[in-house]
């Protein structure tokens, strides 16, 4: 009697498990998301209302004071402006060059298949290795870049320590590293354009330039808009290059938002204050997030 009841119970739990199996399967990933992304964002909002000095174990409610101090901090404002400058310059450079390269590699020529992987090599390197490469190239006394300048009769430049050039030098590194990414995305877009469109245009007597202008670019612009979005999102978080190559200097000319949060949080351990800065950064990126999610969502539904 008892035995059948136990067996019954096991059977019923099994059925219950099978019926809710979709939830069970989703659970591990959902838990990871909750623990590692949802909770941290909420917790950021919470501790941003506190004066939280980790080392001295101070934790006291201050309301919105962290935010008001933050928005009056000249350095924070500078870091936002620097970040925006970096984002715009790097994205513009990468997308313009990447588009040109995608058009170039869309031409069928012998050896294209061998050259393409070489061209995309820079984006395969770890970013800090990219930084190592460019620290060596940018060196004032022995770096290759200044040797080239010298050879053409221009003075050596302090690429990373002259306030006029430092941010530009970082932009250049980012362009070198990520233009290949734009190239790959746009090349995939180009190769989705059916050949008959060009053939028809050719029959109508269109010149190659006209074909680029009236067929390629309109279709490509869809992909270009998307790759711009991706690069805006990725350059906005700029941290590793600044940390390793300039440390935010000279004189805070390359200070960025990520670096500011890092320093407040992990040099001074002003965790409440750094959390407030994190929330501001999150709000700044929010519109991009929405655009990105909407675009991807449509693509999946289509």
């Amino acid at each position: 009697m008892n035995k059948t009841r136990t067996r019954d119970l096991i059977a019923r739990t099994q059925i219950g498990f099978e019926r809710r199996i979709h939830l069970w399967l989703l659970l591990p990933a959902a838990l990871l998301f909750l623990l590692l992304t949802v909770f941290p964002i909420i917790y950021n909002g919470y501790i941003s209302l506190y004066h939280f000095a980790f080392i001295r174990r101070v934790f006291s409610f201050v309301g919105m004071r962290n935010y008001s101090v933050l928005l009056q901090d000249r350095l924070f404002i500078t870091s936002i402006l620097n970040t925006l400058q970096f984002v715009l310059l790097a994205t513009a450079g990468e997308v313009v060059l990447g588009t040109a390269l995608a058009l170039l590699f869309n031409v069928r020529f012998r050896g294209r298949r061998a050259l393409l992987p070489m061209t995309v090599l820079p984006m395969m390197l770890p970013t800090t290795v990219v930084c190592a490469v460019w620290v060596i190239l940018y060196d004032h006394d022995f770096g290759f870049m200044n040797q080239v300048l010298k050879a053409v009769g221009l003075g050596p430049i302090r690429w990373l320590s002259d306030p006029r050039f430092a941010l530009g030098s970082l932009v250049l590194v980012d362009i070198w590293q990520w233009t290949p990414f734009v190239l790959l995305v746009l090349l995939a877009g180009l190769q989705s354009i059916p050949d008959y469109l060009y053939e028809a245009a050719q029959i109508d007597g269109a010149t190659p330039l006209q074909m680029i202008r009236h067929i390629t670019l309109p279709i490509l612009s869809f992909h270009i808009r998307f790759v711009i979005l991706l690069r805006l999102i990725d350059t906005f978080r700029i941290f590793d290059k600044v940390y390793t190559m300039t440390g935010g200097g000279p004189g805070y000319t390359t200070e960025t938002i990520s670096l500011y949060i890092f320093r407040e949080g992990f040099r001074y351990f002003n965790l409440g204050y750094a959390a407030a800065a994190s929330i501001v950064m999150l709000l700044l990126v929010l519109s991009l997030s929405i655009l990105y999610a909407r675009r991807m969502w449509r693509e999946i539904r289509a």
Partner: peptide, 24 residues
């Protein structure tokens, strides 16, 4: 909701999550 959130995560700068993660 789950899938949308997965997309949004892609856009969040990693530094933004690091202070809560550190404390956690």
């Amino acid at each position: 909701l789950f899938l949308l959130w997965a997309l949004v995560i892609r856009t969040i700068p990693p530094i933004v999550l690091v202070i809560p993660l550190f404390i956690m």
